[in-house]
Design a binder for these strands. Structure first.
Lengths: 252, 252
DNA sequence: GTGTTTATCGTCAGGCAGACGACTATGATC
DNA sequence: GATCATAGTCGTCTGCCTGACGATAAACAC
């Protein structure tokens, strides 16, 4: 027994993605250039319509795969593969957020290691990793001196919310490992925290903390010198998802 | 320039509400009885369609007012009034969650003090406060011996997510005061924590903790004996929204 | 007055975090 | 190959917070 369609207003439902990674000590987000109005030529978050037979999480995973080639791993399964972490962020439904029609966007947050190069449907020039700081500054000039236009729609707000979610969530969960390759060193993990929080952490206290938290890190036995200096132990993410006690973000 | 409506599937968008309060030392949620199919006669969370010109938060606030008469206070303004706290929870969009058609529900979480009596559009017999524990148990028997039917749709999942959000959020924010009247005692606040977490807390350590956290509580100067025993100081919620250090939920 | 209830203050030991010294093992440079 | 720079790892110390719990205070019921 379908509803009388006149009994409620019809909406378009989309998923938008905040895809974060850490590159060159900076927190970066995936941005795509819009090829059509509105906001033609401006940068935006990747996203698209939810299909008729699709769950929201499925739609987000599909969009993520289309834009980056990344698989999503099931949160119930420990992070063994190189898949990205994906979770729902929030939903944005201001009646005027899209000038064309009523669109409700279910934003998702994805965290990925540095490996992948962007590929927006095969067209790399229309997708890039940009420093979050750069994407969020209003009307300034980017690192290359070009003027920076604000993100399309309410995507600056969405990106800001996603970054805040990531910043707080790595405090009390093992999510920071989602930014790292399968095997990583304590120093690499520390640089993730430093990039996401934008602070400097004491390497000695950090090492004590993460190696002392049960279930956070599992040593693989191997070592690496890819960061220079003394060889460092390699670790994989442990089974723990919630850190107790949590990592403490230094005061500002 | 409107979209071609055939370019995307149309959705109905609703808001559903998880309205929590603490009554008689138990965490309770507002439930309404469904008057029509599907799930006719079953209990469900209050909610309704988002109107064409309405923001999601507006729709949630409107539904909350319709069901409880509660005003919502702006999170930017300190909680001076008796308004409820309202925040977006998560969005549920499984294609089969409503058998009639494709409905995406943006669930919201509301926290309210004990005062209000339910009034589902004027019909009190179709709305009630029920212990969360009772609403979430599958196929058991309630306190009154009546058999308990599970909540309609995916509302058990939504309620469960809302409760979990509340449980974790009172750890690191001053949100527990949203369950209290404007003026309250340390003991009353402690009983809120005990009801939400389902644990017993040491009154002495709790008192030291909350009175020692800057910005959490502001003494009003008054006292009360409404709980019996020695008169207790009255407090209002302070300006702080984030607690640092957080309240610690005891291990299970 | 005695007992009960609730609020509030104090004490003490254990644990964790921040600050920081010291040592180790690599690659780079001369 | 000696020296330097870099990064990793182990310890120490001190202060703060927490949990456990004793003791006191101020109301009410009888």
């Amino acid at each position: 027994m379908p509803y009388d369609p006149s009994a409620f207003p019809p909406f378009a439902v989309t998923v938008d993605l905040v895809v974060l990674t850490v590159r060159r000590h900076a927190l970066c987000a995936l941005a795509v250039r819009r090829g059509e109005p509105p906001f033609q030529g401006r940068w935006a978050l990747p996203g698209g319509f939810v299909r008729a037979d699709e769950d929201l999480a499925q739609a987000a995973a599909r969009e993520l795969a289309e834009e980056t080639g990344l698989r999503t791993h099931n949160p119930a399964v420990p992070a063994q593969d190189n898949g990205a972490h994906l979770e729902q962020l929030a939903t944005y439904g201001d009646p005027k957020r899209d000038p064309r029609m009523r669109v409700v966007s279910v934003a998702h947050l994805a965290l990925a290691p540095d490996l992948p190069a962007p590929r927006a449907g095969g067209d790399a020039s229309n997708a890039r990793w940009a420093a979050v700081e750069e994407l969020l500054q209003q009307g300034g000039y980017g690192r290359d001196g070009e003027p920076v236009a604000p993100l399309a729609f309410d995507h600056a707000q969405i990106l800001s919310d996603g970054v805040e979610r990531a910043r707080s969530k790595i405090e009390y969960s093992s999510l920071a490992t989602a930014f790292c390759p399968t095997e990583f060193t304590v120093g690499e993990l520390r640089r993730v925290y430093e990039a996401v929080w934008g602070v400097a952490l004491d390497p000695r206290n950090f090492h004590r903390k993460v190696t002392g938290t049960p279930g956070f890190l599992v040593p693989t036995g191997g070592t690496t010198t890819r960061q220079g200096g003394r060889p460092a132990q390699l670790f994989r993410a442990g089974g723990a998802t919630l850190l107790n006690p949590p990592m403490l973000r230094p005061e500002v």
